[in-house]
Design a protein around this nucleic acid. Structure first.
Lengths: 207, 207
DNA sequence: AAAGATATAACCCTTATGAGGTATTTTTTG
DNA sequence: CAAAAAATACCTCATAAGGGTTATATCTTT
């Protein structure tokens, strides 16, 4: 029996989800909550197998709720079920510890499949969300940097000093300095740490 | 009609996949290749809707193949279909531009579903792969950094100077210096850029 | 061949950073 | 409560980093 908890403020949606789950053999939903505050309390007391968590909730948001729950019980499987598909929200939820992300327009059959997939160690995501997630690995490197500059930036991202880079590339430290000046201008940054941060965030280098 | 191309060195697998696809209404596979070299040439000449790409291939690897194809035709949808589920390979493939990642033990019905899902703008992944991908967003707080040190590190990762951090946290620059000394010792690094690089690579901070 | 981009190198000057040591107050924890 | 851990703060010193300027050789591309 797969025990599911629901955190969802809309009573209609909450009840239909519970009915769907309880009406399916092998699935059971004995816990439903209208807010994160109540949900966190109840879930910690009696941990279910999977949690269906809304994001937009009165009081504490679902994202904060995920953080709190995962902090206390890292093994919990929390599936986001929401109408929001905003880039920022999706990644905040996944970073907070959600193990999947479903849109509320998911048909009942697929929702049940998603619960099973979660139980099987998967990470169910709605079509559009999955593509967002995969594309996040592919952020196109802006080609304003020259090959040599990219090479220098790569060394910066390994934490090397000007001198070490000069030695690695068999050029003078002054030339490294010049390349770095150009890199800073193009990336609109003013320090190594800013450049490294930007390089990582925008995937400008292949480490 | 969904046109699928296959790049797969095993002739048996290649042919059964083609048979499966051609035997399904709405799907067609008129291009199959035994190597990346041949695949790239043929695909660029006559682009299909979706490519099923193996990773382990004689000559150029599937990952290199994805890079070459995506460079020339960024709109191509390339699905990886392989027996490998090594962490490194999975993320290399996704970074190279794969839009999904399936294991070779995927049942035929699910494979066809995955093709349709790709056409619909999704990113089909096998259960285990999806979980790996989602987990890659989650922070690993395995460090011995204190809360305050993590806070300082977060500011470092935004490219801030000692002075700016001091102002943000309402402490003296000397205290910032002290925290950073401790951070460097714990992370075993010796410069801001190294610390930032390590923080990003090991997801020590929430940005 | 001319024009433009790129890679190379040097100089000066100021500030930021990293490494060393020491010490007090606050918070956490056993 | 006492001990330990964490956060706070200061000092000095050498070096690394960043900003400005100029210049030449080597490629690309038109």
């Amino acid at each position: 029996m797969l025990h599911v908890a629901i955190v969802e403020d809309d009573p209609d949606i909450r009840e239909s989800l519970a009915l769907l789950i309880n009406g399916t053999p092998g699935y059971s939903c004995t816990q439903t909550y209208g807010s994160c505050e109540k949900g966190v309390k109840g879930i910690l007391k009696d941990p279910p197998d999977i949690i269906l968590m809304d994001i937009e909730l009165p009081g504490i948001s679902g994202i904060e709720g995920i953080k709190i729950l995962k902090e206390k019980m890292p093994e919990l499987d929390i599936l986001v079920l929401t109408i929001l598909s905003d880039h920022k929200i999706v990644f905040e939820a996944l970073c907070a510890g959600a193990c999947g992300y479903l849109m509320k327009d998911t048909p009942p059959a697929q929702l049940l499949e998603a619960l099973q997939e979660t139980r099987d160690g998967g990470a169910p995501m709605s079509t559009r969300i999955a593509r967002m997630v995969v594309q996040s690995f592919q952020i196109t490197p802006q080609t304003s940097l020259t090959a040599r500059e990219t090479e220098v930036l790569t060394h910066l991202c390994k934490g090397k000093s000007y001198k070490m880079i000069a030695d690695s590339l068999f050029i003078s430290e002054e030339t490294v300095r010049r390349h770095i000046k150009n890199i800073y201008r193009k990336l609109e940054v003013h320090s190594k740490s800013e450049a490294v941060a930007k390089a990582f965030k925008e995937k400008l280098v292949n480490l």
